Computed example of a mutant assay.
Amino acid sequence: MTIELEYSSSLNGASNLLFELKQVVKLQRMGLSAQEIRSKVVDENVFQFENKGRITRTLPSVMRRAKAIDPTLASLMTEGSIEMGKVINLYAIMKTDLLFYEFMDEVISEKFQNNDYLIEKRDINLFFTNKSEQSEKVAGWSDINIEKLKRAFMQVLFESGLLKDRRGKELDRLIIDEQIKDHLIRIGDARYVRAMGE
């Protein structure tokens, strides 16, 4: 399923959300509809957030990601290892966030191809400068919004295991389970495997 994406800064309020995505995927696998999942997540505080407002802010992103995961990946995510879950979550983020996918494809994947394991501030700054020149939408975002997005991108890298240290600059290759890799290639999503550095 191809989702036509525009550039968005939604990653600001919803960076990694692996636990939350797993909860929604479990509910989907139980046969609940999108509406039933929304109600259950809010009414029963399935995400275990102290702030109810945060649920309504993050739920749309989590629902979008869950929709991007097919039954095979859903089963690997809920029954596989935490590492498998991290890879599938990263895939779902890329699949639903064009800007983050391009960051992975143009910056992270390229670094791995060149055996360059350092992500510098200038790499991220250059990426956003280029996108501002290519897109009126990105050019219209405030500096504060872009700074938050840069932090959100780094947070996703760290949480998914691509960044060794939360504050560091050293990248680490993901070990992508063969089942996930083969499945993504089979369904025509090899570009996401490449973007993860394979």
Rank of each mutant, 00 (worst) to 15 (best):
T2K: 14
I3E: 14
I3C: 05
I3R: 14
E4C: 02
L5Q: 11
Y7C: 03
G13H: 06
S15P: 14
N16R: 02
N16D: 10
L18C: 00
E20P: 01
Q23E: 13
K26N: 02
Q28S: 05
M30D: 11
M30G: 01
G31S: 13
S33A: 12
Q35H: 03
Q35V: 04
S39A: 14
K40L: 15
V41I: 13
D43N: 14
D43M: 06
D43S: 12
N45K: 10
V46P: 00
Q48G: 03
N51H: 12
R57V: 11
P60W: 07
S61E: 15
V62R: 01
M63G: 03
R64A: 14
K67W: 03
I69Q: 05
P71H: 13
T78Y: 10
G80E: 14
S81Y: 13
K86F: 08
K86N: 13
I88A: 02
L90A: 12
A92E: 05
M94N: 04
M94V: 01
M94L: 07
K95A: 09
D97N: 15
D97R: 04
L98W: 02
L98E: 07
L99Y: 05
L99K: 01
L99R: 01
F100L: 07
F103W: 03
M104E: 09
E106M: 05
V107S: 10
S109Y: 10
E110A: 08
K111C: 11
F112S: 06
N114S: 13
D116A: 10
I119N: 10
R122W: 04
D123F: 07
N125Q: 15
F127A: 02
S132E: 05
S135R: 06
E136L: 03
K137Q: 13
V138F: 04
W141G: 03
N145I: 10
N145M: 12
I146Y: 12
K150T: 04
M154T: 11
M154K: 15
L157I: 01
E159P: 00
S160A: 15
S160L: 03
K164Q: 06
D165V: 01
R166Q: 06
R167G: 01
R167M: 07
G168F: 04
K169T: 03
L171S: 02
D177N: 15
Q179W: 06
Q179E: 15
I180D: 05
K181V: 08
D182W: 06
D182S: 14
H183N: 06
H183I: 11
L184K: 08
I185S: 11
G188S: 13
G188W: 09
D189S: 13
A190K: 15
R191F: 08
